[in-house]
């Protein structure tokens, strides 16, 4: 194999299949931003400290800067662009907007993806659990208070949605 060989990668991003050729040194982060033009995922520290590039790989949060694009071959990636449903913001996004859980917005995509994973695992997290889940995502503007509040609000709305969808079980 030559140094500058490009390697074929097939993966699904937000449910859309992609096939492309990348240099082995390309990170998943750069592939998403530069090759697939999905610039919602932000490049922050690029060494795993800040969490701005958090995406889901097969449903699990990962740092996109700490994965090679070729390692995503055959896997499913979900980015912040995959949160909106049927043209409507995800309840997490709506809650961040309402609660003013962002100022400059740079950390927001990573915060949203981390919060999304948390609420998948724990639909009713307490403040301590939220803060613990967010410990790997740095925000330099907000002091986190509004982010925590937004996640609690979104969790509540998602629980109400789930209850409305299954009335017979919840009233039993």
């Amino acid at each position: 194999m030559m140094d500058d060989d490009f390697i074929p990668v097939r993966l699904s991003v937000n449910g859309v299949p992609h096939r492309l050729f990348v240099e082995p040194r390309r990170t998943l982060l750069d592939m998403l931003r530069e090759d697939l033009e999905l610039t919602g995922t932000n490049a922050g520290c690029e060494h795993g400290s800040c969490g701005a590039c958090t995406v889901l790989l097969d449903g699990q949060s990962v740092r996109a800067c700490l994965l090679l694009a070729v390692q995503a071959n055959g896997h499913e990636v979900m980015t912040v662009e995959g949160l909106a449903r049927h043209g409507r913001m995800h309840p997490l996004q709506e809650a961040f907007w309402e609660k003013q859980a962002l100022q400059c917005g740079f950390c927001t995509p990573g915060m949203l993806m981390t919060a999304y994973e948390l609420l998948q695992q724990n639909p009713d997290p307490g403040e301590e659990e939220i803060r613990s889940a967010l410990s790997g995502n740095l925000c330099r503007c907000t002091g986190y208070q509004h982010i925590v509040e937004a996640i609690r609000l979104a969790a509540q709305r998602l629980r109400e949605e789930a209850e409305a969808a299954t009335p017979s079980e919840t009233t039993a």
């Binding site: 082995p24 040194r25 990170t27 690029e46 060494h47 800067c65 700490l66 090679l68 390692q71």
Partner: peptide, 26 residues
Amino acid sequence: LLAGGQSLLPLLNLRLARPSALIDLN
């Protein structure tokens, strides 16, 4: 060798490590 990459990738990104080849164990 590349395992989880959570220590090696930062070193690569910062070019503190410049291996000629990566052998990915994943």
